[in-house]
């Protein structure tokens, strides 16, 4: 049973990463910027797991699990920040949120 080469998986990972980068740069809603960040992290995860399969080495999968944990904590802090911004009745627009002063 032979499926596609690892190169195909890496192409999908590169496309995912570029899609996420486009979303981060293009969108103004911080929620969608966070979702696009998730897509970028998942593209990197797919590349890690593809290389782990290529070399027959489990360490890549360990790294992917660590990336998932970091992504979960990033979402927790990011969503907390977004809720805090929304409670201050500020516009949810990353172009207008240019001051750190609360």
């Amino acid at each position: 049973m032979r499926g596609p080469d690892v190169a195909w998986y890496l192409a999908v990972a590169a496309f995912l990463f570029a899609t996420g980068a486009l979303g981060v740069l293009l969108r103004r809603s911080p929620l969608i910027v966070l979702l696009s960040l998730e897509i970028m992290l998942n593209g990197a995860n797919l590349a890690l797991i593809a290389f782990s399969r290529l070399h027959g080495e489990s360490s890549g999968q360990i790294f992917a699990l660590a990336v998932m944990a970091v992504a979960a904590s990033e979402v927790v802090v990011g969503l907390g920040l977004i809720v805090a911004i929304a409670q201050k009745r500020l516009d949810l627009d990353v172009d207008k949120l240019s001051f750190l002063r609360g």
Binding site: D5, A7, L10, F17, A18, A21, L22, L25, L54, G56
Partner: peptide
Amino acid sequence: AVLAAGAILVEVIVVIGLKAGGRLSHEARI
């Protein structure tokens, strides 16, 4: 934004193709 995302895509694919292009089809036995 579109230009930068496209540049990242081309960059990643070119670098992977140059550095590991020939070795990507020999998967290790697991």
